[in-house]
Each structure stands twice: as C-alpha cells, then as structure tokens.
Design a protein around this nucleic acid. Sequence first.
DNA 1: TTGAAAGCGGTACCAG
DNA 2: CTGGTACCGCTTTCAA
Lengths: 311, 311
Amino acid sequence: MPTIKDVAREAGVSVGTVSRYLNGAVLKEQNQRRIDAAVARLGYRRNALARSMKTGRSMLVGVIVPALSNMFSMRVIEGVEHALEGRGFSVLVADSGGDAVREREKVALLRERMADGLVLMPSGGAARAILRAAGKMPVALIDREMDERCFDSVLVKNEAGAYRMVRAAIADGARRLGMIAGPETVQTARERRAGFLRALAECRLAPVTIVPGDYTVEGGKAGMSALLDAGVDAVFAANHELTVGALSLRDPRAANVRVLGFDGMELGDLCGERLTSLNQPMEEMGRAAAGLLLARIERPDAPIQSLRLPL
Amino acid sequence: MPTIKDVAREAGVSVGTVSRYLNGAVLKEQNQRRIDAAVARLGYRRNALARSMKTGRSMLVGVIVPALSNMFSMRVIEGVEHALEGRGFSVLVADSGGDAVREREKVALLRERMADGLVLMPSGGAARAILRAAGKMPVALIDREMDERCFDSVLVKNEAGAYRMVRAAIADGARRLGMIAGPETVQTARERRAGFLRALAECRLAPVTIVPGDYTVEGGKAGMSALLDAGVDAVFAANHELTVGALSLRDPRAANVRVLGFDGMELGDLCGERLTSLNQPMEEMGRAAAGLLLARIERPDAPIQSLRLPL
DNA sequence: TTGAAAGCGGTACCAG
DNA sequence: CTGGTACCGCTTTCAA
C-alpha cells in the first residue's frame, strides 16, 4: 500500500503539498501533473483512518436497530445510507437484539470508533444510559422519543394515522373492532393504541378486545386467533409483523374479518380486499434521521428537533 | 475525550504500561488497580482509529449488496454481523444499486477505510475490476461465483434444489410448467433454470414457457400474467421478489395454478396451498461468508474455497 | 506556492 | 515488569 510519502517522493514534492492538492488546493500546473501521475502510477489511495485521526471526523455513522432482518429496520438503514453516501459517510450497522445492555455496548463501540453520529432505534427507555455511552456523539432516534428531550428524533403521526384508518373502517361498516397491540413499553405502540381508542370512542363504540402482541408474526397469529374467538369483524394490527401474523392465521372465520394493518406493505396485493394498510415512509424516516444527524454535527448546540412525518 | 496519556498520568504509570494492561498483560497488582481507577474516573475508552492505525487491522468488515431493502441482503448482513460481532468486528454496509461502477467505488472506499475484509454480492461479472479495487483486501462472494476462481464464495445448491422442487410438483400432478426466470447474466439464475429444465427433461416434459423476470416484484407479476395466458398449471419463480409478484397478480385463472417459489419465506402462510417454497438459509450464508473471510484474514494464501450449502 | 515538522492516540520495541 | 520512544499515515500550522 503506497502512502502519501511515496507519492511525494515519486512526484518530487513534499508530503504537505500532496496532501493539500488531494484536498482540493490548487498548485503549480507542473506539480499537479506530477502528483496526478505519481498517484496513478502507484495506485495510491489515501488512508481514511489516518485522515480521520487528524481531522477528528471519521465520516462514519452508526445505525443500531433491535433486529436487522426486519422490514422496518432495513428500510430505515437504506434511507440513512442513501442520504449519507453522497456526503462521503459510510454506515455501520449493529443489532442490539432488543436488549438494552447490548445496545449500550454497541453505542460505546461506535464511540470508540469515533463515529460522527448515530441513528438509534432504542430498545429500552434508559435515555441517561445512552447519553452516557454516546458521550459527545450526536444521536438521532427513529420511531421513538425519550422522556428527557435530549435527542433529535423522527416519528410518524401514529395516533392520527391509526385514528384515521380506524374511522374509515367504521365508516365502512365495522362495528366489532379488536386490536393486536404492541408492547406497552413502546411509545409508538401506545400512540397507535390511543388512536384506535379515540376513533372508537368518538363513534361511541367499545373495543371488543385489545390483545398484546409483542410485535412478532407469532404474536400476530395468536392475537388474531383470540380476536376471532371474541367475534370481531375488524382487527387493527399495530405493526408489520403483527399484520403478517394476523393475515396468515388459517381460520375460516378470518375470511369475513377485515384487517387494518400498520405497515402492511406489499401484503395488500397478496391478500386482496381483506387488508387495508397504512404504510410508514420508512426510507424517508431514515433519510430524515440522517438529515437531523448532519445538522447536529454541524451545529451541536442547535435546539433539539422532533420530526413527525405525515402518514 | 481522555486519552491513554491522561490515564497514564492519572495512574502514575507510563503509557506503555497502560496500553499493555488494556491489551491483556498482567502487571503489579497495585498498578492494575490504579489504572482501573483512572480509567473509571476519567471514563476513558480507547480510540479504535489510533489503534487500528498502529496494528494495521481496522476490525471492520464491509458488506456490499445490490439493494439494502431486500430480504436476502438483509438476512445475509444479519448473518455476517452475528458471526462477527463477538470477534470484535463491526459491519459496514453499502448499497451498489446493482451497478458495477458504483460497486467498484464502494469496494475502493472500503479499502480506503482499511476494512479487513469484504462480503460481496456482485452486480456484474468483472472479477478483475473488483480484484483491482480490493487490492489485498480479502473478498468473499455471496450467491455468486466468478469466472476466475479468485474469491471465496458461498452459494446454495441451486440446481439441485430447483430440480427437487420441480420433480415434486410433477409427481404431484403438474404437467404444464412455466418458469419466471432471473437474468441470464446471474449465475444462480442460470442454475435454477437448469434444475427446472432437468426435472422436466427427465419426466419427458417440455416447459410451456420460460419468461425472463429480472428479479423484481413487477417482473413476477408480468411473468405470471404471461404464463397464465400460456395456460400453465404450475409456475416456478426463481427468487423471492418474483414469487411475491407471481402470487400477488390478481387473476381468477391463478387460483388453480400452483406456484413454486424460491425464497417464498413466510408467504406460505399468507397464501396457503398455492405456494410451495424452497428457502435459502440466508443467515447461514452470511455466517459462512464471514467464516471464510476470517479464515482468509488469518491465512491469506490458503486455497480458494467455494461452499455450497444444502437446500 | 511550498517544505519542514509537530502532532492525532495508540502500540511495540528496547533498555533497564 | 516498567518507562521511554519511534512510528502508523495523514493534516496543518509556521516559515521561507
């Protein structure tokens, strides 16, 4: 691996000159040529590590999610990557497994690597711990806020979205509605639930049941099964996995039950009229988080922002 | 951010001593205590950049895929991450967009970052170009081999898998079979096609049609539509996206056509008996690729390996 | 415009 | 076992 020194020697100029040129400075025509030639001849590429070390910027951004192979995570990661790659940043991914301890470890690891920022989909709710592990490294939260307003964040209007979808279903004839909800500990899950309840309340309906669903396909199946037993005519599933689960339960009674899904995605095509779904703009959320991060890297002391994307 | 020097001063020992201790050496009890105390007091974390610079190992592994928001990519990335995180490596992801030029750029970028290795799902077939961009950085290919046997690789037994699934369908009564195939340029697509053809040939059947499908959901729909026109009774879709497309086409004639899908995943539950699917062990493939990479990092000159995982 | 040199934060070698 | 120090490859003053 040739270094900048080799290039300098080969071109007959000093390292400083090469460095400046490589960073955009203009120099005497002749020297430029020589350096270009030397770079080409040697196949020189600059060492990003050494560079980062001097500049203090690693051009690395981390993304920590509870699980990598999950529609939502993957789209968010894609959004972050697309928003950042043009700016010279690379994306480091890590999987917290939904565990707060591992999550903190990963955050600390990113700090050791001098990541310039971090997009986090937090597992737990320990803002202070994350803050400590992150140090001065900017953090943007996705799909979650934290009690203390100490991080930028991007979410969608969960309550309003859920409300609207449920209202539409009621307008469409649904009367016995049930919900497969996400974990109480998850803010967005609570918001979706709130939207569901408000829609019902405004129509003077009571929910048939709300079953907890832990955001897994299995949970969706189990929930659907329970709701069918309860005799619902419509089911609101609070996220993608629950929606998949609800739709994949094989039960003859399911045929007449409409499913309202959060992030049903392309499932609509597969299942036809049974499903109405509300899709979060996941990639957009990733892009937005990246944007918040960049902004904060520029101005660390700007006021905290919490974005609510429309649904 | 405190440095190792601060720790040394605080603990009243030399930097060398601190460094050694942090890397596992044993020293005088008293000094260990002092260092531990200093580290805790200062909240010291070592700088991975500086460390990498000296050791020449970045503990970074890149994964380049044609598209991040794709089940297969994500599972593979997950596998790589899980296999590597325990060993202290972090995973850098990049999206080539299926474009050979961008791909080479990303490879070069990873080299600039001194990545210790690279898992690549190549877009094109230009082994030489990749080799050049990668320099001495080890590369493990996923789901593809290259003409010159210059990279380790992990694939599944595509031909055999396709063959088996198609034979089973024929045994089950299928007689007019069609296929929505992947791009001719993609090795695995050719293998799956070969398996399909062999199964038919052995049963003295001719394929009704093979339509090209470019591995997208849209392609799957279009292909399915064409095959229905041709009057098939079974369709083999060569990857996940094509399978989704085939299944989601709304056409009454589709009801009696069985779909054989590569990587149908959880679609089976959603679509019931229409679908038979063969799922690649994606995460396992990622793990295997990571393993190959680690092995090669250890012994750069070991013979090239091409793994074929069973289906 | 250019060259020389001082680090960035570690590691590893060499004496002691 | 420990301290001192050269150096990894680059950027960035500071003079010339």
